[in-house]
């Protein structure tokens, strides 16, 4: 067993266990923290796949920014949910049809369908060219894949790149508008 396989097993266990806890944790704050753990595990997979730039971006954007926003939203919106109280056990939750059994059935069905689809592929005919880590772009040079990604973004992918920046700008303006409207609504209610 090589170190790669051991690392893969550990990361896979970490990612899948914490994703399971996201799905089942009774407290929403615990689910949020397990989501952060899942995202860190996926960043570890990116490191194993020699995508250092993406791994760092994953930690910066997801674990840094998105998780902060999610935790803020939890604290601002549902303070009552953070406190623990009487909650149904996992078995009771699974047995309730709409919030346990049917989602579980759909999730398992989709997973099995995708796994079966992978099972029908004859992998030896898929044109995957594997490069040993030492020959992989960035594996031997100091710049890593960051330079290659930057080059691709500003040459072949320049149009999608600009469209995404426009979308990000629109999302930012939209979020500000939502926040301003929300606080104005509160003032109106106070005046009434």
């Amino acid at each position: 067993m090589s170190a790669q396989i051991v690392a893969f097993g550990l990361l896979g266990g970490l990612v899948l266990y914490s994703a399971w806890r996201v799905a089942t944790a009774p407290l929403i704050t615990h689910a949020a923290l397990f989501l952060a753990l899942t995202l860190v595990g996926v960043a570890g997979f990116f490191f194993m796949l020699q995508a250092e730039f993406l791994a760092v971006v994953q930690i910066l954007v997801y674990v840094g920014a998105v998780m902060t926003v999610i935790i803020f939203a939890i604290m601002l919106s549902t303070p009552a949910l953070i406190r623990s109280g009487e909650r149904p056990t996992l078995i009771q939750q699974i047995l309730s049809p709409r919030y346990g059994a049917i989602p579980l059935l759909v999730g398992v069905a989709v997973t099995l369908l995708l796994l079966l689809a992978y099972g029908t592929v004859s992998w030896d005919q898929v044109p995957l060219t594997f490069h040993p880590s030492s020959q992989f772009p960035g594996g031997s040079t100091a710049q890593g894949t960051t330079g290659l990604i930057g080059e691709a973004l500003l040459t072949r992918y320049i149009v999608p790149f600009e469209v995404v920046s426009l979308l990000l700008l629109a999302a930012m303006v939209g979020a500000i508008v939502l926040a301003v409207e929300g606080s104005r609504g509160k003032e109106d209610e106070a005046r009434d």
Binding site: A19, A23, Y99, I102, P103, V106, T111, L114, L115, Y118
Partner: peptide, 16 residues
């Protein structure tokens, strides 16, 4: 396979 299982768990979370 790991990605499929992760996707299934995400779908389960979003639905339940």
């Amino acid at each position: 396979v790991v990605a499929v299982l992760l996707f299934g768990l995400g779908l389960f979370t979003a639905l339940r």
